[in-house]
Design a protein around this nucleic acid. Sequence first.
DNA 1: TATGCTGTAACAATTATAGTTACATAGAAA
DNA 2: TTTCTATGTAACTATAATTGTTACAGCATA
Lengths: 143, 143
Amino acid sequence: MISSRFAVAVHILSLLDINKEGRNTSEYIAGSVNTNPVVIRRTMSLLNKAGLIHSSPGVAGATLARPTNEITLLDVYRAVQAGVQDELFSIHDNPNPQCVVGKNIQSTLEQNFAKAQNAMEQELAGITLKQVTSDLLHEETSS
Amino acid sequence: MISSRFAVAVHILSLLDINKEGRNTSEYIAGSVNTNPVVIRRTMSLLNKAGLIHSSPGVAGATLARPTNEITLLDVYRAVQAGVQDELFSIHDNPNPQCVVGKNIQSTLEQNFAKAQNAMEQELAGITLKQVTSDLLHEETSS
DNA sequence: TATGCTGTAACAATTATAGTTACATAGAAA
DNA sequence: TTTCTATGTAACTATAATTGTTACAGCATA
């Protein structure tokens, strides 16, 4: 299961956009996400490293580094997954090379799993932060 | 990250097809996968419950319950994921309902994540066990 | 200079996974 | 019928990722 870090990251970015007049400190954002400020700072650190936001020590808050229509959910996904595991599916190690199946299963699975992962990522690539925040505000007015 | 149980399950099913003349005990399969027989039996238990294979106590081995072109990777995925978490993406709990973002983020994310998960699953649905075993044998002859 | 915030280390608690031993029970084979 | 073998499952361990938490160094600004 994909960590809620991803969901939290989208939450943070949405807030930075919608509340762009505010200060958006990690404590304030934590109040909206309902978690500890350090969780927010950790996630923002990843978003910063990925070039999606600007933030720096000592300076309260953060700002989006790009227009909302140039930030896709795939960008966010990769930012927060970076370094963990970039393969969505895991494949067992060291199957028996003396067995036809064992010898070839890894490469076969890699290819098929890559297709599935790619389909998922392309769907994320088609959704921008702009659409997300627009959805958020729209649900608000329609409720 | 999706558990290697899925990869192991595909390995097992491939072996049942390719080695359909053999006895295919959990011990034999474990030798091909390179793991403990109990890991195989646990996974086979899930495949059995999902109706993908036939196996029973006391009787050595297992057999496919359906033709290989009627078993898709999505069937296998669902069989081994059953009960764990059927949502691919997790969403943080209890965001602040007094914040526009906090109030609506969950439903917005749910919708978008469902699209991505669906794209992935449809890709898996398009791949049959028949294709997988055909790939396996094909790689064998071409290497 | 005093304050407030970020960035990050360090640790705990929780959860899923993967491997392992053990054994009850069902069927096969002698 | 008795013996043997294999499945199904419980129980336990080890490992890893995640999430929350406390603590604090260092920067920026009022």
